[in-house]
């Protein structure tokens, strides 16, 4: 019998699921941040904990200032989420094997029931996109009704991060399989891409050259953040052009 760790995949570089972000059309409206929080049962940490830097967002809009006053210019808005690295720096440091690489979907997984909360992965992530549950944050009565039943409600002491909406991936794959076909391009997308009013975020299969996301990724203009670290990120950014 062949164990799963003996199966060698060549798709770690290309990945399976990928995302492109067009920074020219991103207005920084934060619709993706809100949609992500709704889809993935992300807690609202409140003002005080947020001040301690404990806010939990799986996607955030980064922006930087260039130049000296008074010639200050803002860089394009930069949505930043887990880059689902092919060689992720978070994975080898986990002592509990809670953050593992999915061979089937080529994603970085966070297995909440294995996580013991060492926070080593977050310290080792060059993108700083992991969020830690410092408390069991309460959801007052009407808010509990909007929890997504397809996503685990995390508890205190557990690390979490963007999953590329793996619950939507599974649902689309399940629907496709029940109808005896492959998942089609554009059949589903992540919550952030769905909410983006400017269509700055495109999601799909990057290993299939005919998909929209693969065509944008492979047009040669994109950059991958901190690719020089050898993390093989699967999110491609575009700007100025």
């Amino acid at each position: 019998m062949i164990r799963p760790d003996e199966v060698k995949m060549s798709v770690e570089e290309t990945g399976k699921w990928g995302m492109t972000i067009n920074q020219d059309v991103c207005t920084g409206c934060q619709a993706c941040v809100a949609a992500c929080a709704m889809e993935n049962n992300i807690s609202f940490v409140g003002e005080e904990d947020s001040g301690y830097g404990r806010s939990m967002h799986w996607i955030r809009i980064e922006r930087f200032w260039e130049g000296e006053y008074p010639d200050v210019r803002m860089t394009p808005q930069q949505p930043m989420m887990c880059q689902q690295c092919g060689h992720a720096t978070c994975e080898p440091v986990c002592p509990a094997f809670a953050t593992v690489h999915s061979q089937a979907e080529q994603l970085n997984l966070q297995v909440y029931n294995r996580c013991v909360g060492t926070r080593y992965c977050a310290n080792n992530c060059p993108y700083q996109v992991r969020a830690f549950n410092w408390r069991d944050y309460q959801r007052p009565e009407p808010l509990s009704n909007q929890l997504n039943p397809d996503v685990t409600v995390r508890r205190m002491g557990v690390m979490e991060k963007c999953t590329f909406c793996i619950q939507r991936i599974h649902r689309a794959q399940d629907t496709a399989k029940s109808e005896g076909r492959e998942v089609m391009d554009g059949e589903f997308t992540t919550a952030c891409a769905q909410a983006c009013p400017a269509d700055a975020i495109v999601f799909g299969r990057v290993d299939k050259p005919e998909t929209l996301v693969a065509q944008i990724t492979n047009n040669g203009r994109g950059t991958k953040h901190l690719a020089e670290l050898g993390t093989l990120p699967h999110v491609t950014y575009f700007k100025e052009g």
């Binding site: 799963p4 593992v100 999915s102 061979q103 089937a104 979907e105 994603l107 997984l109 297995v111 909440y112 029931n113 996503v151 685990t152 999953t163 793996i166 619950q167 599974h170």
Partner: peptide
């Protein structure tokens, strides 16, 4: 046997 098949 992928973790992500059941845990997410």
């Amino acid at each position: 046997t992928d973790c992500g098949t059941c845990h997410y």
